[in-house]
Design a protein around this nucleic acid. Structure first.
Lengths: 117, 117
DNA sequence: CCCCTTGCGGTAGATTATCTATGGGAGTAT
DNA sequence: ATACTCCCATAGATAATCTACCGCAAGGGG
């Protein structure tokens, strides 16, 4: 009997940042779901945990919005896998979201740091 | 005909951070809703926008969880206002959420900064 | 006195995102 | 064949935020 759905600062992913993380991961090249998740987890030093139930819906909405495109391929383990790559629009979106992220972090940190000037 | 509910990196507040912002604001002393919202907006240099429809539910849940306590008072403008103050548990929670926030920011930034060592 | 604006609290409903918990199919190893 | 792993996928629950309302009271202008 599970309790929580998606608690904010106790969850595995900060809501609203998963899309950004996926887009950034795909900058390095096309990849399929498993690889993307592992890349995010590894590069975050296992602080971030990407659940499958969050990952695939995220991939679908990113594709629907045109930020990424997919094609079927074969994984390193010889499994059928759906690969995703960044589109031109996705690259642009990544730039925007990165900027927005940095603005928000700066803004929040200003609130957290009481008067420092 | 409303448009969108709560878009992630396009909204006014990063989902999951409002509680933290409120708790931090109350460190400086008790305050009522309007004051809290204005404080967050001002200290973030107007990057963050605290909507009433987000603020009051947030205050209620924080109180319900025991992080803050409330009492009725009179505002600077001679209006009846509900003041909130940090509880001892709230102070502790603030410390935890601040740490969690910093961990998450570091983790996400590691993902955003491709290989820098 | 009446009205309108402002300050202040509050809630309902919609939208979105994430998590938990499933399921299935297809390689691989035993 | 059986089990196990890899990989994709979806349903349902939960939570948080936003938009858009609603009340009430104080103050100012006519």
């Amino acid at each position: 009997m599970p309790k929580r759905g998606a608690p904010p600062l106790q969850g595995e992913i900060l809501p609203g940042t998963l899309d950004l993380l996926i887009l950034q991961t795909l900058v390095l090249g096309a990849a399929h779901g498993h690889t993307i998740a592992h890349a995010i987890e590894h590069r975050s030093e296992d602080v971030l945990q990407v659940e499958h139930g969050s990952l695939y819906p995220a991939l679908h909405r990113l594709e629907e919005r045109g930020w990424i495109a997919s094609f079927w391929g074969t994984s390193e383990n010889n499994r059928k896998a759906r690969y995703y790559r960044l589109t031109r629009a996705g690259r642009k979106e990544l730039t925007q979201q990165t900027g927005r992220w940095q603005d928000l972090v700066r803004a929040i940190n200003r609130v957290l740091r009481p008067a420092e000037e």
